[in-house]
């Protein structure tokens, strides 16, 4: 079973601050999504609303077609994983696992044990005494072993070192292949994890900037490089994301697919057309001067 996630005209305010500003999103079930946004863009607020940790100020959130807020049967199907553990500092990890076994209908104990070993999760220490890396390891172990139909990792593995993060990516991908479910990952480590995303959602200032198939999004950014005049002529009237000059050479990043005819014309004018990576595209789309 996979569950879809729908956000309809969602607004979340904290006093005067608008964290999410009329966001509408439709995520089909059973895919891995990347949610990208700068600090303070509203990622955690959106994900908290989807997980029923927070009530929408206005608008609606639907998971599998139903409202998750104060819906216990549905929230058991949604697992929200952060880089800290939702437990008392005095609890030990063993107790946290006991709770998870009780609360999570799809909990896989054997898999949990394998992950505890792989990520070296300390079971006897108090949560408050765990290092940042150990907290992340505990969080992702809880998130993976829960096998919840909607699993959300909100920068949950930031405290892990590079080898542990790659181990996490491997576990996530293999377990997703074996047990397809809806996974949403919010992250700043775009280059590391970008190839895992089937679709990417970019938000900025609580609003949607882009939502597309990862590959289609990648194909949408083009860096046009060549003699300054020719670049200016070719990019006139297009959505320009970035612009750099070095002597007589200019490199302009544009947004939007080029037709074969346009590509041919660019080449004829001595222009070089280069691809733009997901991370660069994200940086350009959410840059300060565009805000």
């Amino acid at each position: 079973m996979t569950l879809s996630v729908e956000v309809k005209d969602l607004t979340i305010r904290y006093g005067e601050t608008v964290a999410v500003d009329g966001l509408t999103l439709k995520l089909a079930g059973g895919k891995i999504y990347g949610l990208l946004g700068r600090n303070g863009s509203g990622k955690t607020s959106v994900l908290s609303a989807v997980s029923a940790f927070r009530k929408a100020t206005s608008g609606a959130v639907l998971v599998g077609g139903a409202e998750p807020f104060e819906n216990a049967a549905l929230t058991r199907q949604i697992c929200f994983v952060r880089d800290r553990v939702d437990a008392q500092d005095g609890d030990c990890a063993r107790g946290v696992f006991r709770m998870a076994r009780m609360l999570r209908p799809n909990w896989d104990e054997e898999y949990a044990q394998a992950l505890i070993e792989r990520f070296h999760v300390p079971l006897k220490k108090r949560i408050g005494a765990l290092s940042r890396g150990a907290k992340s390891a505990l969080s992702v172990t809880l998130g993976l072993a829960a096998r919840a139909p909607v699993t959300i990792f909100d920068e949950s593995y930031l405290g892990m070192d590079a080898p542990s993060r790659y181990a996490f990516y491997d576990e996530l991908l293999n377990d997703y292949i074996a047990h397809p479910r809806t996974i949403i990952i919010s992250t700043h480590l775009i280059e590391e994890v970008g190839s895992l995303f089937e679709e990417v959602v970019i938000i900025d200032k609580g609003r949607l900037v882009a939502h597309d198939d990862t590959e289609a999004l990648r194909a949408r950014g083009v860096a046009v490089t060549g003699p300054a005049d020719a670049v200016a002529e070719f990019t006139a009237g297009r959505t320009v994301l970035g612009d750099q000059r070095l002597g007589g050479t200019r490199s302009t990043t544009i947004y939007g697919q080029l037709t074969a005819e346009e590509r041919g014309r660019a080449r004829g004018a001595g222009l070089d057309l280069g691809p733009v990576g997901l991370q660069d595209l994200f940086v350009h789309l959410t840059a300060e001067e565009r805000r």
């Binding site: 790659y166 990516y169 991908l173 293999n174 997703y176 190839s195 995303f197 089937e198 590959e215």
Partner: peptide, 10 residues
């Protein structure tokens, strides 16, 4: 996908 650490749909 598993070997190259990429999304199976890709």
């Amino acid at each position: 996908a598993s070997f190259y650490r990429i999304n199976p749909a890709t």
